[in-house]
Simulated scan of single mutants.
Amino acid sequence: MRGLARNPGLPPDLLLRVIDHPAVESYHVMARREFTDATFDLLAAHPDARVRVHLAEAEGATPGQRARMLDDPSPEVIKALLVGPYARWWVPLPPEVTGQPPRERVRPVPLSRAEAEEMARDDEDEWQRARAALEPALSTGTVGRLTRDPHPTVRQHVAMRAGLTEAERAAIDYRVEQGDYLAVPDWVLDADGDLLTACVRSAHPGLRRAAAFHRDLTAEHIAILAADDDFPVRLLLCEFQAAVPVDVVVRTHLAGTTINIGDLLWHPALRAADLTGYADDPDPGARALVPLDRRAPAGLIERLSHDADPWVRSAVAGDGRLSAERVLELYADPETTAAASANPHLPVTVMERILAEADHLSGPPRP
């Protein structure tokens, strides 16, 4: 049912039956690479606001399609439209439609010296002290005390203060692990020229991670960060820079374990790249990316549908370049049935049978 929900060949009457079925949530319907205007408009008119919210957040919807929802009566839908799909931050609603610039990071208001000093004295909350450690208004004495703070989070952050030399940062006893959460200092986002380059080349992973957010990285900066030995640096670079080379995006995606690592599959580098070279990659995850290349020949897609790895066969099973005969073979294989259910060449009679056989399924009660 969930495979069927994202099938682009699903007739309108069946689509409405699927989306209202208790075994399907509306986000299952939105998990498709693109929407026809007819399908988008049908879902945009759905009476359930949750369906329209998920449509507004759908990565596969174009900015022009999403702009057609700006007169939606639900404030939640409007909010979802303005925030946009997380995985496609580089394609916001057109400014001429919203009257607003592309979405930017909201920065905290700088603290006064009195506020910063009070926060730095919070012995109960190391995160308060860590935030204070980045405030430019802090006194020299307080900064010195925070460099010796007993909590490593505070020392991590005070070592990211503006104005320190690399030697001064290195003199602070800090260490950064891959899973550590670090703030993004505003001074790094505002840096340019030699200062930005210094952040990109800093020994402090927190400054390099912050630099990955910068809107004006040069090709040299991107190349340096793409080779960084800190995985979060490479991940953030892929998430926030459209000019990252395709192989960096692919390898970062394959190495990732976070719940949203699939968002990288929407990176613009993949949309324009020739991915057929990954068809013989020893990593099945890389071979599974080939169907994202809309120019890959049907013969190659057919070959990958016989791949020894079920992950690869499932990645290909929904591809419209497969023959109808091969789609039915994949549908008959329990390892690829769900994926083949999303193939537009699946006969409508089979789609109807899936719906008929799903009558006994139930999901969580709808609010």
Rank of each mutant, 00 (worst) to 15 (best):
V176C: 02
V97W: 15
P101Q: 07
L93N: 15
P92V: 14
R161T: 04
P95L: 03
Q156K: 14
R148L: 12
D122R: 04
Y86S: 13
E76N: 08
G99C: 02
P101S: 07
A170T: 04
R121Q: 09
V154A: 04
H157E: 00
T140H: 08
T147Q: 05
D123T: 07
V83A: 07
G144Q: 03
G99Q: 02
R121Y: 01
L134I: 14
A120Y: 02
V143T: 10
W89D: 15
P92I: 15
D123S: 15
P94S: 12
T147I: 01
R107K: 03
A87W: 13
L138V: 06
V97S: 14
P152H: 02
G163V: 09
D123H: 14
R129P: 10
E76T: 01
G84H: 10
R129T: 04
V176L: 03
R148G: 06
G144I: 09
V143S: 05
G163F: 07
A137H: 11
E118M: 11
Q100M: 13
V109R: 03
V83E: 03
V97I: 15
A167Y: 12
L146A: 06
W90F: 11
P102T: 10
L93C: 14
P136G: 13
A159G: 11
R121F: 10
D173M: 01
R103L: 10
A133T: 04
G99A: 05
W90R: 08
L138P: 04
A120E: 09
L111W: 09
R129A: 02
V91I: 13
T165C: 15
A116N: 06
R155F: 13
V97H: 13
A171Q: 09
V158P: 11
G144A: 05
R155K: 00
